[in-house]
């Protein structure tokens, strides 16, 4: 059984069905990527895994434990962390306050973790007294990562971390993600930039209309002619 597993998830917004028996899983130290066309339900998978949307059927297990019934907050304290695509920082708070809020649920000393985040993203240390809204897109993304890492999560969910950033920043963000994975965390991300994402992924899921269309390692999917033709532009 994989570390985080979403099994046969069925979900809908109101009466509009989004997910049909969709399954994803990710191991510790592994980077899994969900790609697929717009409206395929990629972000919905994340929301269900996080408990921000209740699945009508299916289960979510973390380390073998069923967490389907837990609230978002409880899942966070069980080791899940999420970086939303947009609005992923507290804009009118300083970088340091953003990190402090990330560690809100922790009862122990969080300063050690803040230092670790600064070590990973040195620019944040220089900007620690600045408001998050004054940072560049790439820096803001680092604040968002840093905030999510404050709970010392075992698994990180990322919703389109490279949406709307320049190619240079995209490379930077992907290398940040690999650092996070190499630190032993499980990383599951939804990506629009399918080609680049699958290149660095250990495992990939191609989602179409809420169903698993293709599953395999990143390399397998890139080399799969059908996936290439339909989703990677040839």
């Amino acid at each position: 059984m994989a570390y985080l597993e979403g099994k046969n998830l069925v979900a809908s917004y109101g009466v509009v069905p989004i997910l049909h028996e969709c399954s994803v899983e990710v191991e510790k130290g592994e980077l899994a990527v969900i790609v697929g066309p717009n409206g395929a339900g990629k972000s919905t998978v994340m929301r269900v895994l996080l408990g921000m949307l209740n699945a009508t059927s299916g289960s979510v297990t973390l380390d073998g434990k069923d967490i389907s019934m837990l609230s978002t907050q409880d899942r966070i304290s069980h080791g899940l962390a999420f970086v939303p695509q947009t609005k992923n920082v507290f804009p009118s708070m300083t970088v340091e306050e953003n990190l402090q809020m990330g560690g809100f649920i922790r009862q122990d000393d969080i300063n050690q973790t803040i230092e670790e985040v600064y070590a990973l993203f040195p620019i944040l240390y220089d900007k620690r007294k600045q408001l998050a809204e004054q940072l560049s897109g790439g820096q803001r993304q680092q604040v968002a990562f840093g905030r999510a890492m404050m709970t010392k999560p075992s698994i990180m969910l990322l919703d389109e971390p490279t949406a709307g950033v320049s190619p240079i920043v995209m490379d930077e963000i992907f290398s940040n993600i690999l650092d996070v994975r190499n630190a032993g965390m499980a990383v599951l991300m939804v990506e629009q930039n399918a080609q680049q994402a699958l290149n660095i992924a250990d495992k990939g899921y191609v989602l179409v209309s809420g169903r698993n269309e293709h599953t395999g390692t990143g390399k397998e999917l890139i080399n799969n002619s059908e996936v290439r033709k339909k989703f990677l532009g040839g």
Partner: peptide, 23 residues
């Protein structure tokens, strides 16, 4: 204070506050 900052965080971005475990 931690609670005061959490209030500002909640005011700033409700969903992210929820994701940070702020009640």
């Amino acid at each position: 204070t931690k609670t005061g900052k959490a209030m500002r965080a909640y005011s700033d971005n409700k969903e992210l506050a929820l994701l940070s475990g702020i009640d």
